[in-house]
Design a protein around this nucleic acid. Structure first.
Length: 110
DNA sequence: ACTTTGACTATAA
DNA sequence: GTTATAGCCAAAG
């Protein structure tokens, strides 16, 4: 694949089912950069400038916390989007995060 | 070209 | 349990 790491990240993010969430580490690992979790976040930040836009609100940190809420239109946007998908958010953290966690590699199934 | 920062993660105290 | 520090890699200043 000639796609850049960022493009691969975007592709994975678009594959996240609605009502599910994943972590930067999982995406980075699926993209071939297990140590590039921060780059995933950087790519997400750029997601507002790409097309089609990716559901960055479904990407959380390893703790299931809404680490990137401040990058949206308003810090509240991310939580609202998650709640709109049936995800319960409490104190900037997704409840039952482990239950809603979606592994991109599990779907790709090498 | 060099320094600083960042939507992270893991380990140590 | 939380807080601090280090490792990581790429983009922005």
């Amino acid at each position: 694949m000639d796609n850049d790491f960022f493009d691969r990240v975007y592709d994975i993010c678009r594959r996240i089912p609605q009502g599910r969430v994943t972590t930067y580490g999982a995406i980075a690992r699926a993209a071939g950069a297990p140590r590039g979790a921060r780059m995933v976040g950087w790519a997400m930040n750029k997601s507002g400038s790409i097309t089609p836009a990716v559901p960055a609100h479904r990407v959380l940190n390893r703790n299931g916390m809404l680490s990137g809420k401040h990058a949206f239109a308003t810090p509240r946007t991310m939580q609202q989007l998650l709640e709109a998908e049936g995800i319960e958010v409490k104190d900037d953290r997704v409840t039952d995060f482990e239950k809603l966690f979606w592994d991109p590699m599990k779907l790709s199934e090498f």
